[in-house]
Simulated assay, not measured.
Amino acid sequence: MDFKDDVQLDNSQVESRGRGRIPGGGLAVGGGAAGIIALIVALVFGVDLGGITGGGGGGEPAAVGPSSDLSAQCKTGQDADQNEECRVVGVVNSIQEYWPKAVQGYEPAKTVMFSGQVSTACGDADSAVGPFYCPADRQVYLDLSFFKELESKFGAKGGPFAQAYVIGHEYGHHVQNLLGTNAKAQQGDQQGPQSASVRLELQADCYAGAWAKNAYETGLFEKPFTKTDIEEALSAASAVGDDSIQERTQGRVNPEGFTHGTSAQRVKWFTTGYEGGDPAKCDTFAGSI
């Protein structure tokens, strides 16, 4: 994944915050295996922290310490190729260049990079929750340490495009929020192999694939993504399947506890989006998944 060296980055779409304290303290997740699964599976690529995080409420996210000046270090595509934070800026820029052309009425969403802890309109969170999208403030939250966890604990290959896939997935949730899909899905079953939650997550994977297919046309990349890039994304998608995570954490697979889809399903739906390049082909709510 190579950015054009001279392309200009738009830092206004990404905010970088330092480490800080959460008022009222951390996550409130039930103990035992069920609680651990809820934390890892429901929030690794989660949609809404409501009911899982402690504290928090409405309003703007609280500031949590010194911010990194992205405008000073992330100016061009060359910076994005050499610096992880700048790469996030470049990927976000590309995603938000794509979606207005694919979805009428698309509204930009900011990404907040944080370290350790963050306060959001959906509640308070720390790095254990992984990347997530908060519908209440329409922002994506990302602790870069998650990408190391993706390799060391989830067995993914890692790499720049694995990161791009994760970000693309979270912006898929933003698109769902704008289209009203999130609200509809919350009215259905939240667990189980055919649940609304699983369908929502697989659609976000598909949306990430649709962006990836069209990313070169956004003008930020030197060339279309390579087979190696896509393999990085597929490895990440497979690593965070419900069955893979359950097997790693509790030694058995329980389909009735699924919230995000199996490894095979996540690979299938990212591939569907990538091969078709059309979000209209991402209707996971119609028929079998």
Rank of each mutant, 00 (worst) to 15 (best):
F3H: 08
F3G: 07
D6V: 08
D10C: 07
Q13G: 05
V14H: 07
R19P: 01
G20R: 06
L27Q: 10
V29A: 07
G31C: 04
G32D: 05
A33I: 10
A34D: 06
G35E: 01
I37H: 07
A38R: 13
L39G: 07
I52V: 05
I52D: 02
I52T: 10
G54L: 12
G57R: 06
A63F: 01
S68D: 04
T76D: 02
D79Q: 00
A80H: 03
D81K: 11
Q82V: 03
Q82M: 02
N83R: 11
C86P: 01
N93A: 10
S94T: 08
E97D: 08
E97V: 06
Y98L: 12
E107K: 15
A109H: 11
T111W: 03
V112M: 11
V112P: 03
V129P: 00
F132G: 12
F146Q: 05
F147E: 05
L150T: 06
F154W: 10
A156G: 08
K157M: 12
P160M: 09
V166F: 04
G168F: 07
G172H: 07
G172F: 01
H174E: 12
V175F: 04
G180N: 04
N182F: 06
K184P: 00
G188C: 05
D189N: 13
Q191S: 12
Q194W: 05
V198L: 04
V198I: 08
L200T: 13
E201Y: 14
Q203C: 12
D205S: 13
A212F: 14
N214H: 15
N214T: 13
E217P: 02
T218L: 13
T218P: 00
L220D: 09
L220E: 10
F225N: 11
F225E: 12
A233Y: 13
L234R: 11
R248S: 13
R252F: 09
N254R: 14
N254A: 12
T259M: 10
T259D: 00
H260D: 06
G261V: 11
S263C: 03
Q265S: 12
R266M: 10
F270M: 06
G273F: 08
Y274H: 15
D278V: 02
D283I: 00
G287M: 04
S288D: 14
S288G: 05
